[in-house]
Each structure stands twice: as structure tokens, then as C-alpha cells.
């Protein structure tokens, strides 16, 4: 059984945000519009977050792309009263939209704020509506439930089906989330962290590797390679 993880090289990332866009197209996240976005209601499973430190003129800014961290010890799944969110056997934190009661306990428990709530019924401009991903696994979510990055879990299923159709065993390299596939600077790596020969497990062991809020003990499966 694989333990899926991601490595993001901050030296290679130039914050073009194509990961964010690819994610939107792949996962059918709705368009919030500027007014709602300014009120913190935009749903972006992947976001490039600005961390500004210091005051002008002594300012440094780090831009960090942030998908769900898919923690090995997720604080969000613990607090869900109905097990609508859970970690599957391959380490991916999933949500059952049919069961979520919308209490938003998981959204306040997650220190990374990767979980988003559908404040209204999701909407798209007409032109975008035609280009929604037809995969039923990413069908638009109803209002009142929580959603978040799933490492494009629908692609894992497709990769398995593809390998089976071709009559060959499925390998970890068959499965790539949309953000990794699209990354302009090739800053993202994805694979099986339990496989010692995989690129991700080797990069995760690099002295440059760190994880967000590591001190909280959540054990994220998204690693970053330090800038500079």
C-alpha cells in the first residue's frame, strides 16, 4: 500500500499560480467573485500563500504553495462528529459530501486552513460551466458542506483503471495530481513516501526539507525544500 506524499521545491517555484488554476479546472471548485473572495469565501484547494515579514523597507516575502497537507496525524478527522472526513488506507484525507453536516469543526481544527466551506450554492459563469470536469467523483459539491484538496484522488482511480486496461501492474508514477502535472517550474514532486527509492522519499530526506508547523505534531505528507 502506497503512502502518497508531495514535495515542493521553493527554489524552483516562482509563484505563477498555475497549480491553483489547474486544480480548479480538475476539481470543479466554484467561482466566488471578488466580493465573496474578499470576505474569505473563495474556494481554492491549492493556494499560493504570501508570508510577509518585517515592515517597509526591510521586508521579506515568502510565497508558499499550499495544498492540503494530508497529515498522517490529521487534527481535522479527529473532531468530525460523523466520520464524514477520514484518512484512507493510502494516507489521503477525504471527505464524504453526502455525510458532512456542515458543523465546520474540521475547518477550525485544521491549523493550515486547507478546508473550505460552501457558504452558498456553488456557481460558475456560463462560459466556464461548459468546461466543468465531467468526472462524477468531482461533481460540484452542494451548499453547506466542507471540501478540500484530495491529491486528485479521482486520478488515482483512473490511473489504476488505465494500468489494468493495458494489462500491466499499476506503479506509483502512473498517478499524478493536476498541480504536479501542470507546474511550470517543475517544482512539485509526487509519489510514494514509503518507497525508499522514490524521488519524493529521497527529497523528503534532504537537509533542505521542512514541513509547515512541524512542531504541532500533525506529520504532514507535504514537504517543502527550503528557498536559497
Amino acid at each position: 500500500m502506497a503512502r502518497w506524499g508531495m514535495v515542493i521545491d521553493l527554489d524552483k517555484c516562482f509563484a505563477c499560480q498555475s497549480c491553483t488554476l489547474a486544480c480548479r479546472m480538475e476539481n470543479n471548485t466554484p467561482v466566488a467573485g471578488p466580493d465573496q473572495a474578499s470576505r474569505g469565501r473563495a474556494i481554492l484547494w491549492n493556494e499560493v500563500l504570501p508570508f510577509v515579514e518585517g515592515e517597509y523597507p526591510e521586508v521579506t516575502m515568502a510565497l508558499i504553495p499550499r495544498p492540503c497537507q494530508h497529515c498522517d496525524n490529521p487534527p481535522c478527522t479527529k473532531v468530525c462528529p460523523v466520520k464524514a472526513t477520514y484518512k484512507d488506507e493510502e494516507g489521503i484525507v477525504c471527505i464524504d459530501y453526502g455525510r458532512c453536516i456542515g458543523c465546520r469543526f474540521c475547518t477550525v481544527a485544521c491549523p493550515y486552513q486547507v478546508r473550505y466551506f460552501n457558504w452558498y450554492r456553488p456557481e460558475w459563469p456560463e462560459a466556464l460551466k461548459e468546461h466543468l470536469n465531467p468526472d462524477p467523483e468531482v461533481a460540484p459539491r452542494p451548499k453547506g458542506v466542507v471540501e478540500k484538496c484530495t491529491f486528485c484522488i479521482q486520478r488515482l482511480r483512473k490511473a489504476r483503471e488505465g494500468a489494468e486496461a493495458e494489462g500491466r501492474p499499476f506503479t506509483a508514477t502512473d498517478y499524478t495530481p493536476a498541480c504536479v502535472q501542470t507546474c511550470t517550474g517543475r517544482a512539485r514532486y509526487f509519489g510514494d513516501l514509503d518507497d525508499p527509492n522514490s524521488l519524493v522519499s529521497q527529497l523528503a530526506a534532504s537537509p533542505r526539507a521542512f514541513r509547515l508547523l512541524e512542531e504541532m505534531g500533525t506529520q504532514p505528507k507535504v514537504y517543502y525544500l527550503k528557498q536559497g
Binding site: 479527529k78 473532531v79 468530525c80 462528529p81 460523523v82 466520520k83 464524514a84 455525510r99 458532512c100 453536516i101 456542515g102 458543523c103 465546520r104 469543526f105 466551506f117 460552501n118 452542494p142 451548499k143 453547506g144 458542506v145 466542507v146
Partner: peptide
């Protein structure tokens, strides 16, 4: 108040069906 705060108020009885004691809400 908890019911008012729920995003899916019609699922108010789900904790009775699928409730789990890891959650402080339970």
C-alpha cells in the same frame, strides 16, 4: 444554536446514526 450553525440542518440526526466519540461534539 448548534442546529442554526449547521451548514446542512436537515442532517441534524446524523450524529445519532454515525456519531463517533473521537469528536468533542459527540
Amino acid at each position: 444554536q448548534i442546529w442554526i450553525d449547521m451548514g446542512r440542518p436537515e442532517r441534524v440526526l446524523y450524529p445519532l446514526i454515525w456519531g463517533r466519540y473521537q469528536s468533542p461534539f459527540l
